[in-house]
Computed example of a mutant assay.
Amino acid sequence: IFLTFYFFLAGEMSSLHLNQSGPTEFVFRVLTTSPKIQILLFCFFLLLYIMILCGNSAIIGVVCAYSSLHTPMYFFLSNLSSLEICYTSTTVPLMLSNIFGTQKPISLAGCGAQMLFFLTFGGADCFLLAVIAYDRYVAICHPLHYTLIMTQQLCIQMVVGSLGLAICLTLPLTALVCSVPFCGHRLEINHFLCDAPPVLRLACEDTHIHQAILYVVGIFVLVIPFLLICISYFFIAITILRIRSAEGRRRAFSTCSSHLTVVLLQYGCCSLVYLRPRSSTSEDEDRQFALVYTFVIPLLNPLIYTLRNKDVKEALRKSVSRKATSETL
């Protein structure tokens, strides 16, 4: 499905490109020109990428394998891990291929396709974090009605709706960014991926309208879901404070602390890239923040949820024990 959609988008971008005197390709600025540092960076980022794939795949496999984890909370968690895998796989392989100093060109169509997938999976990630906050709100504030409210059909609709809403917001934005006129036939992007802000910096015309639309999309993807998360946790905090036993308050808070940690990391870094005024940002800062939400957050997600969740840790322990037993036999 992704490949079919990629080639469809590539055709659309190519036809769009024929109608403007823009570049035929982009190149990414190399991180360093030192061969030794290039090898170290390649090995380091490759190791992080493998850890991201293994960690998130382990969560998906454990949730699917154990019926005790077939609940809305773990259903959302496994989908979040799936988005993290797609999210990093959109950018990291191309980044690794360009790390050794050879500037491999990417066409306008390819750049637009990468931008679309990167923004779509990132936006769906943010929406899904808001959905998880609502799930925690229902579980803590309305525990007796939890199974009646969080039905399987509603959970599927929320996940599909998160991805669909992200596509509806990012597809027009990607088309708008790729339709601006560029000066030259081969331009260098001071980044390791085709993101909207660094591509807009290469435009030949005034991009204030494009920047305004980018801020509007950022508000829908970042600000509104974050406000909904804050509202959910406001009512959750009130409910937790009403619990008389200290053990009950601790257990209720432990189910939310992992999610809050991920929310602060995800929304904090993304807001610094997409919601800050362009005059107060630099390309190098954007690239540094992009490294955080491309590598660090997808890597921390499985670690945070695993280390802070007894059910997942127990399921992982059983999986390891079964594998060790089968290998022994």
Rank of each mutant, 00 (worst) to 15 (best):
G248T: 00
L80S: 10
L148Y: 05
C155T: 12
E188I: 14
F182V: 03
S254L: 01
S271M: 13
E25I: 06
Y74W: 07
I219P: 01
F44P: 00
P105A: 03
L128V: 13
F42L: 13
Q114I: 15
L303Q: 03
K36Y: 07
L303S: 06
H208Q: 08
T255H: 01
T325F: 05
L228M: 08
L299A: 09
V263P: 10
I224T: 15
N56E: 14
L40N: 07
V292T: 14
V160G: 00
N79W: 15
T4R: 09
T4Y: 08
I50Q: 07
F182Y: 09
I209N: 11
L176F: 05
V217F: 06
G161E: 03
T88D: 04
G268N: 11
E84P: 00
Y134I: 14
V180P: 02
L299W: 08
S81T: 08
K323Q: 13
L129A: 04
C54T: 10
L119C: 09
A246I: 03
I240F: 07
P198G: 10
Y137L: 12
V92L: 12
S15D: 13
Q211D: 14
T88M: 04
Y137C: 06
S81V: 06
V273N: 00
Q211N: 14
Q266M: 13
T147S: 11
F100R: 15
A237T: 10
F127E: 06
C86Y: 14
E283K: 06
S254P: 00
L69F: 08
M115S: 15
